[in-house]
């Protein structure tokens, strides 16, 4: 939907003069309303992005002592890709699995809240958001306790043979993906709920009247109508999960580290700013490309 549709003049009108001054005033209002957000984006997104892009092209032989020169050293990108390809692929793999798991968990949950919860609806929504009342870090640390080697989860799984007797859950890929799924589940559930909740139930009834089975009605009516929520939910889960490093840091080992861990260490420990910036930029571009391909395929133009 474009702004023009709402604030533009509604075609030629007999009373030209008043309409024109109204449109001028409304245009100024629109600008004023947009200005704070635009300024915010400019100062805190556009400028730092340019700075980051410049940093990623610094001469890598620089150091803190000697300073860095901007030499358009594109090689930085190839260098980091060569060294950290594994962590890149792992980030997208883990984030992808976590997104699918969150969808499998979140869709039935959102469906139940939207259609079946009755007077418990508000309570259930609060419960979905409740984990946000504690910090992200604490929630992840709690998983360390839950998945501990001598904890009851591992013991029970060992008893039924799902985990080998000398195996463990903590410090494995399973733990990292579990942590990612858990931490981003509300981001999946809430947009799905918002979409599902808006669906007019009479449409589903109409489908039944036309002899569709429950499954067909879901596939042909409910699912397509919930697509905006599904797309928004998967994006809100996948994008932060791909850049996350807390879960890998706390629940994984060096073999599970993701690209976020590498970026963190390049900026803060190794102090290799060109490489760190190149990594950040690559991550941004990769996510952008994936998201654009996904949104195009999902065909939900009204979202963007």
């Amino acid at each position: 939907m474009s702004l023009a549709a709402e604030v533009g003049p509604a075609g030629p009108t007999p009373a030209r003069q008043p309409a024109r001054s109204r449109s001028r005033r409304s245009r100024r209002t629109a600008l004023l309303l947009l200005a704070p957000g635009a300024l915010w984006l400019l100062v805190f997104f556009a400028l730092p992005t340019v700075q980051l892009a410049a940093t990623s092209l610094y001469d890598p032989s620089g150091s803190l002592e000697t300073g860095y020169a901007l030499t358009f050293h594109w090689q930085n990108y190839l260098d980091v890709l060569a060294v950290y390809r594994d962590q890149f692929l792992r980030s997208f793999l883990y984030a992808g699995i976590a997104t699918v798991l969150a969808l499998l968990l979140g869709y039935p949950l959102a469906y139940a809240i939207a259609f079946k919860s009755g007077r418990w609806k508000n309570l259930m929504l609060v419960l979905v958001i409740a984990p946000f009342f504690t910090s992200f870090l604490l929630r992840t640390l709690a998983w360390q306790a839950i998945l501990a080697d001598n904890g009851f989860v591992v013991d029970s799984l060992k008893a039924v043979g799902l985990v080998p007797t000398d195996g463990r859950l903590l410090a494995t890929p399973v733990a990292v993906v579990t942590g990612l799924t858990y931490n981003f589940l509300p981001f999946m559930t809430l947009p799905l709920y918002a979409s599902l909740e808006k669906i007019d139930h009479r449409l589903v009834e109409a489908a039944h009247d036309l002899y569709s089975s429950a499954f067909t009605a879901f596939r042909k009516v409910t699912l397509p109508l919930s697509m905006p929520g599904l797309v928004a939910g998967t994006l809100l889960t996948f994008i932060p999960a791909a850049g996350d490093y807390i879960n890998a840091e706390l629940l994984g080992t060096p073999k599970e580290y993701m690209i976020g861990n590498v970026i963190q260490s390049s900026f803060l420990v190794r102090l290799d700013f060109p490489q760190a910036a190149a990594l950040s930029f690559l991550l941004m571009i990769a996510i952008l490309v994936l998201v654009m391909a996904y949104v195009r395929r999902a065909g939900t133009e009204e979202l963007v």
Partner: peptide, 23 residues
């Protein structure tokens, strides 16, 4: 907006021409 961003970015680029020595 993009014209403004480019303008600002140009300014940003000038200041981003490398980093001085920290010594």
């Amino acid at each position: 907006l993009s014209a403004g961003a480019l303008g600002l970015a140009g300014g940003g680029l000038l200041s981003a021409c490398g980093v001085e020595a920290a010594q």
